[in-house]
Design a protein around this nucleic acid. Structure first.
Length: 332
DNA sequence: AATTCGGGGAA
DNA sequence: TTCCCAGAATT
């Protein structure tokens, strides 16, 4: 039987990951939010940091949002951090500190969608519901020989139903973990390791030699070219920063000055950076400009190096900040 | 249904 | 370079 095969493979070959050794819904929820669109290796240190700083749901709920976001710094998709904090507070104040114990209830939480609700419901509460993440989608697309684009909601639904049928009689948590682990380590996007796969004999993609054709998407990711032009305004050892507005990349993060300067002032140092993101390719020019007065145009203000290092929120392009620091060091 | 949220690693 | 990662929310 499929579920028995894949679960016995999992029990022998699984990675030892901290959130797999608990049924504490808080710890599982925390790990799932951190891991959304994030590799295990990238999220792991954040998971430890958060758990150390906030061992309980109440500790997280009580913390200032700025502190939470600062702990989130560098992980990206910062709305996850904001939702994390919001939901912790909501569960404390409206849910009597208890997570909903089923898929439908969990889905009502901010930042918890289909996958995350299914993951928590199965891992923490043993509910029979397939957790279809990117790994599972790829695995089932191949295993079932599903010749439909996996970025189509209808395909995702049919894969969900396909997985649900295969779960029959299995431990839901083990089943979901097994599928994701197989997708993450064996049924990988490129050059899948079919020779190590426990269910290769039943895999339709393998028998039809479609391992390298499945899954596929109907749409291609569009990458927008974008140029940004920053003036890094410096006054003695201080740098001008301003919080970015909502509605664009890096909303709510600290940003350098980015308007035309009138009158034009001499450029002390300049450098370029390319920043490759999923949907944008940013070409950024930085010009360090030394100001004699400390006027604070446009709502921002000058921050000392120490203040910047203790900033309550992340700063955009951390590398540019470091280059500026070096420049300031050489000045003095 | 399409777009928008980041950052990093693998091929 | 392109693709993808234990996706979700908004438009």
């Amino acid at each position: 039987m499929f579920s028995e095969k894949i679960i016995s493979w999992y029990l022998i070959n699984k990675r030892d990951l901290p959130w797999r050794n608990t049924r504490n819904p808080y710890k599982i929820w925390l790990s799932e939010i951190i891991l959304q669109q994030t590799r295990v290796s990238q999220g792991l240190p954040y998971y430890y940091n958060f758990l150390e700083k906030y061992p309980t749901l109440e500790a997280l709920a009580t913390a200032p949002i700025d502190e939470v976001l600062r702990l989130w710094q560098g992980l990206g998709y910062y709305s996850r951090g904001r939702n994390l904090h919001f939901t912790a507070n909501q569960i404390v104040s409206e849910y009597q500190k208890k997570f909903p114990e089923n898929f439908e209830g969990l889905k009502k939480l901010k930042g918890v969608g289909n996958y995350t609700a299914a993951a928590i419901a199965s891992f923490a509460f043993g509910q029979k519901v397939p957790a279809i993440d990117g790994n599972a989608l790829r695995f089932f697309s191949r295993f079932g020989g599903i010749n439909e684009p996996i970025d189509d909601p209808n395909t995702i639904k049919s894969i969900f139903n396909f997985a649900y049928d295969l779960m029959e009689g299995a431990d839901p948590a083990l089943f979901n973990q097994s599928v994701m682990e197989l997708g993450a380590t064996i049924c990988v996007p490129k050059n899948p390791k079919c020779d190590q796969c426990p269910v290769r004999p039943e895999c339709l993609a393998f028998s039809h030699r479609l391992q390298d054709k499945l899954p596929f998407k109907s749409k291609k990711i569009k990458v927008k070219e974008r140029k940004l032009d920053y003036k890094i305004l410096v006054n003695e050892d201080r740098i001008w920063l301003k919080l970015r507005e909502a509605g664009d990349i890096w909303a709510g993060l600290y940003d350098f000055f980015s308007r035309e300067l009138v009158p034009k002032l001499p450029v002390a140092y300049s450098f370029q950076k390319k920043h490759i993101l999923t949907h944008q390719r940013l070409s950024i020019s930085f010009q360090i400009i030394i100001l004699e007065n400390d006027e604070t145009p446009d709502g921002g203000k000058f921050y000392s190096i120490k203040e910047i290092e203790a900033l309550p929120k992340p700063i955009v392009i951390d590398e540019a900040f470091k280059i500026t620091m070096k420049f300031l060091d050489q000045l003095s």
